[in-house]
């Protein structure tokens, strides 16, 4: 198998792009797709400061590496979620990546914010792990970006993530979510602009980029994601992709063309949370502060004080 670009020995075939690539040209393609995506969607400019949400996984570390290589001013933030046998190795990969390259990484610990981590929360309050985690991540990442004065918060969502989310939202006709699914969500008050520069790259391309570039990342999956709906949707999409190459990309790009046909039920007015001052669409406390209050109340009722992780 020869590289479509240079004719050297290829290591990967990208059927959706009709390309066979050697390591050098796989790296070049991935970086070009990211550079083009940033420009096409006007995500940010080289003089803006970007905060990358880093998880220790392949996508976020690849994203950070690419942004730096492309000359962007990107720092990282790692959320220590307090998940046993997972958060610690994830943090170690993130910290090692930053240290080896002399990059700035802020570590935010959920246990310090809520008095307990995700494991402890799941024992205390009802709710699905991914949903709870989503609430916490959205709040803490936005707060870190806002307080740090960053222009945009970049996440490592890739084509597979976005196609699976889209399929899930369509299956349930979640019109409100559909209107907000886009590579860039503009800033609004204290909500920092959110961008997804990897959105047109498959997970396989991103993983290949990491392996070729020597980026060490955590292979292990979050233990709470076992059986998650998003993984099932990804497998279904990959079966379709296997039969009809290009399905995922066409699905997502096609959606972006018709997305404006979906309208949010009614405009959402954001207020400042009376406790933390961060924006919320809810009356009274924001979801994060409500969660913190519940944890505090349950801790007192259970006779716990301090960390329950």
């Amino acid at each position: 198998m020869k590289c479509t670009v240079c004719g050297k020995e290829a290591v990967i075939k990208l059927r959706h792009a009709n390309l066979k690539l050697c390591p050098e040209h796989l790296v070049a393609r991935v970086e070009k797709v990211v550079a083009d995506t940033i420009k096409k969607h006007r995500m940010f400019t080289p003089d803006e400061r970007i905060l990358v949400a880093v998880s220790g996984g392949k996508d976020s570390l690849a994203l950070w590496a690419i942004l730096i290589k492309l000359g962007y001013r990107a720092d990282g933030v790692y959320l220590d979620l307090g998940i046993a046998n997972y958060s610690e190795p994830s943090r170690e990969f993130s910290e090692a990546f930053a240290a080896e390259r002399g990059l700035d990484l802020e570590v935010v610990k959920v246990t310090e914010e809520l008095g307990t981590g995700i494991d402890g929360l799941l024992r205390m309050v009802r709710g699905k792990a991914c949903s709870l985690c989503g609430t916490i991540k959205r709040y803490l990442l936005n707060r870190a970006a806002y307080k740090g004065g960053y222009s945009a918060l970049a996440t490592g969502h890739n084509l597979d993530d976005e196609a699976a989310t889209l399929l899930g939202n369509i299956l349930r006709w979640e019109e409100g979510y559909l209107t907000r699914q886009y590579p860039v969500l503009l800033e609004e008050g204290k909500l920092v602009r959110r961008v997804k520069p990897l959105i047109y790259l498959s997970e396989r391309e991103v993983a290949a980029y990491c392996i070729i570039s020597g980026i060490r990342y955590i292979y292990q999956e979050c233990p709470h994601s076992w059986g998650a709906r998003s993984i099932t949707l990804k497998h279904i999409l990959n079966e379709l992709e296997d039969r009809y190459p290009g399905t995922k990309l066409q699905f997502l790009k096609g959606f972006f063309k018709v997305r404006q046909r979906f309208q949010p039920p009614e405009p959402v007015e954001l207020r400042d949370c009376p406790v933390c001052g961060m924006p919320t669409a809810a009356e009274g406390l924001c979801r994060f502060c409500r969660l913190r209050e519940r944890v505090h109340t349950i801790s007192i009722a259970n006779g716990h004080h301090g960390s329950t992780s």
Binding site: K13, E203, Y219, S225, A228, N238
Partner: peptide, 29 residues
Amino acid sequence: PVRDGKIVPLTHRLEEEEEIELVDVISGG
């Protein structure tokens, strides 16, 4: 497919006694 830290192409013919790791690329949650 990865062997000795390098990607092995899908067209590769398996050799006697070689070991190849199939690294999952699907992440989720």
